[in-house]
Structures are given as structure tokens and as C-alpha cells.
């Protein structure tokens, strides 16, 4: 999947990746690739500014800490981020149902 198609969904994907756990930047990228079966083709360098943007929005909190013996910035969801993720999931389900209704139903029946 190309990065242009992903950009509009990147914030929601990052929030979902952080759901229930605290991760550093590269672990978030690995989790995204793992869950998508490697289909998400995104310049990894765009993930870090996106995480900062989410932090500015109050959806994630970050801190420098030592992980596996290395100094890394780790991120976790705030309560506001959890609410935003729930909203994004609801909006995504509504969107996919609507699109599936149009794209997935085949040709219109022929007029009698």
C-alpha cells in the first residue's frame, strides 16, 4: 500500500499501535509492518514527526528512557488518546460499511 494512501490514516494507525502498551519509535514501525503483513509502505522517518504531532494534540505522552540498554524516546496513549482511538475506530467501521455497500455489491440488476 503506497504512502500517499496511508498518510490520511497514519495518526489512527499509530494510536492503534500504542493501544494498551508503551513503545519506542522503531518498535512502533515494526508493529505497524507486522500487523499489516508488510503491506504498509511508509517512509519510516515520517513516523517520528507524526508521533510528535500526536503528542502536541495531547493524544500520546513521551519520555526518554532506557530500553534494552539504549536510550530511547518511548510513547504511550493518554486518556484523551484512548478516546480519540475509539472515535477513529467507530468512524472507520462506518466508512468501510458504506464503501462496502457500494463497491462490494456488484453490478446493478438489469432493468425489466
Amino acid at each position: 500500500m503506497k504512502s500517499d494512501a496511508l498518510r490520511g490514516h497514519l495518526d489512527a494507525l499509530l494510536l492503534a499501535t500504542l493501544d494498551g502498551r508503551e513503545l519506542h519509535g522503531y518498535a512502533i514501525i515494526e508493529a505497524l509492518q507486522l500487523r499489516s503483513g508488510g503491506a504498509l509502505d511508509l517512509p519510516t522517518g515520517t513516523v517520528y514527526p507524526a508521533l510528535r504531532r500526536l503528542e502536541r494534540a495531547g493524544f500520546v505522552r513521551s519520555e526518554w528512557s532506557t530500553v534494552s540498554g539504549r536510550h530511547r524516546r518511548t510513547y504511550k496513549l493518554t486518556s484523551s488518546g484512548e478516546r480519540e482511538l475509539a472515535n477513529q475506530r467507530t468512524a472507520w467501521r462506518e466508512f468501510t460499511v458504506a464503501i462496502e455497500g457500494v463497491l462490494g455489491s456488484g453490478p446493478w440488476p438489469a432493468k425489466a
Binding site: P43, T44, G45, T46
Partner: peptide, 19 residues
């Protein structure tokens, strides 16, 4: 190469520096 082309990455990082 995976990290991304410099102009694109610099543009996104610059947003944060402006803030």
C-alpha cells in the same frame, strides 16, 4: 532508504521545529 527522501523528511521535521 527506508527512512525516506531528505526533502520529505526535513519538511516534516521542520513543522515540529516551527512549533
Amino acid at each position: 532508504a527506508e527512512f525516506g527522501p531528505l526533502p520529505l523528511i526535513a519538511d516534516e521535521y521542520q513543522e515540529e521545529l516551527a512549533v
